[in-house]
Amino acid sequence: MTDAVFDAEELEAARVLFAHPVRFLMGAVAISGLPDPDLPEVAFAGRSNVGKSSLINAVTGRKDLARASNEPGRTREVNFFVADEKLRLVDLPGYGWARASKSVARKFQNLGRDYLRGRPNLKRVYLLIDARHGLKDVDKEALDALDVAAVSYQIVLTKADKLRAAEVEKVVAETLQKVSKRPAAFPRVLATSSEKGTGIPELRAEILAACFA
C-alpha cells in the first residue's frame, strides 16, 4: 500500500519514542492560549467523523488519550498532547460538522486556521481522509487553507481496513494525483487503520522525520 521508505531502525526508533509517556497538555479555545512554541509540533486535521481521535490513540498506543465521540464535531478546541517531552501532537477542530451551527463551526474552524498561519514550530499537518471516500469537494477548502498557510501537509487515509488491498492502492494513487500540483502537499500518501494497526508504524516514523530531520 505504501513504499518502504523507512528502514527497521527508523521504525523502531519511532515505536520507542511513543512507548514513552504521552500526556494531554491542554486545550486552547483562543490563539492567545496556545503553549509556547518551544517543541516541534505536528497537527491532525480532517472531517469530524474521519477518526482523528482513534488515529491519535493508535499512534500513541493509548486507548483513551484523545477522546473519541459518537457526536461529530465535538472537538471544539485545539488540543495538545506531549510525547516523551520531545514533541507535541495537536488535534485540530474537525470541519464539515453535522450538528454545529454555521456560526459556531466557523468560530472553531477559524481557530484552526489561525493556528496554521501563526505557529512557527509546526512541522507538518496530517490531513485525514476516509479511505472509503477519498478526497471530496468538502476537503478542497482545507487543502486550499493549508496551501495558503504554506504548511507542509500529508494526506493520511483512515479506515483502510474497510477496503480490499487493491482498492486501497487505487485510492492512494488517485489521492496522490489530486494533490500532486498543490504547493504544500507532501508527496506521499499513507494508508492506515487504527483498528488493525495498518500504517501506524510508518506514520510514527513520518512524525519523527518531520520533527527532527
Rank of each mutant, 00 (worst) to 15 (best):
V22N: 02
S53L: 13
D161N: 15
E77K: 15
P183D: 05
G94K: 00
A8C: 03
T175I: 02
V125A: 04
A45M: 15
K123C: 13
L111M: 12
A160H: 08
A142P: 01
V189N: 02
L208Y: 09
D147W: 00
W97D: 07
K196D: 11
Q177V: 10
A165M: 13
L11F: 00
K102V: 12
P201D: 02
L65Q: 02
R47I: 07
K86G: 00
A14V: 05
P21Q: 11
M26W: 14
G61A: 04
A184M: 10
A205I: 05
D64N: 11
R119P: 10
S180Y: 10
H20F: 01
Y95E: 01
G197A: 13
K52A: 06
V138K: 05
T192W: 00
F6E: 03
E9Q: 14
R47H: 10
T2D: 11
P201S: 01
L65Y: 05
N121W: 05
M1K: 08
A43N: 09
D84S: 15
R15C: 00
P72I: 09
R119L: 09
Q177P: 01
T175H: 03
L87W: 03
V104A: 14
A45F: 07
I129W: 06
L127I: 03
A209P: 02
A205P: 05
R62Y: 06
V16K: 10
E195P: 04
W97P: 02
A160R: 03
S32L: 15
E195G: 07
V168T: 05
D130K: 08
K136Y: 00
G46E: 00
L17G: 07
R67T: 15
R88D: 05
A4K: 11
F81R: 03
P37Q: 04
G73L: 10
R164I: 07
V22G: 03
S152W: 08
P93K: 01
Y115A: 13
P72F: 12
L17K: 02
A209M: 06
K196L: 11
G61N: 10
R204M: 04
E9I: 13
V151W: 15
K178E: 12
E195A: 09
E10W: 00
T2Y: 05
F18E: 02
S152Q: 15
L208A: 04
T2V: 14
T192R: 04
D130Q: 14
G27S: 15
V172E: 08
V172K: 07
D3C: 01
P187H: 08
E77M: 13
K170A: 10
D3Q: 10
D114H: 07
A166W: 06
P35C: 00
P183K: 08
A66E: 03
G46N: 03
D36S: 13
A184N: 14
G27K: 13
D7P: 05
A8R: 15
N79F: 01
T75F: 09
D144P: 00
W97C: 13
N110T: 13
F108R: 06
L55R: 07
R23I: 09
S180Q: 14
L92Y: 06
K136I: 04
Q154M: 14
V29I: 08
G118K: 15
V189Q: 01
L87P: 04
L176H: 06
I200E: 11
Q177E: 13
S32G: 11
L55I: 08
F108T: 06
V156E: 01
S48M: 07
A145D: 15
A68N: 10
L11R: 02
R99E: 00
G33D: 07
G46I: 01
P35F: 04
D161E: 12
D114T: 09
F6H: 04
L39A: 02
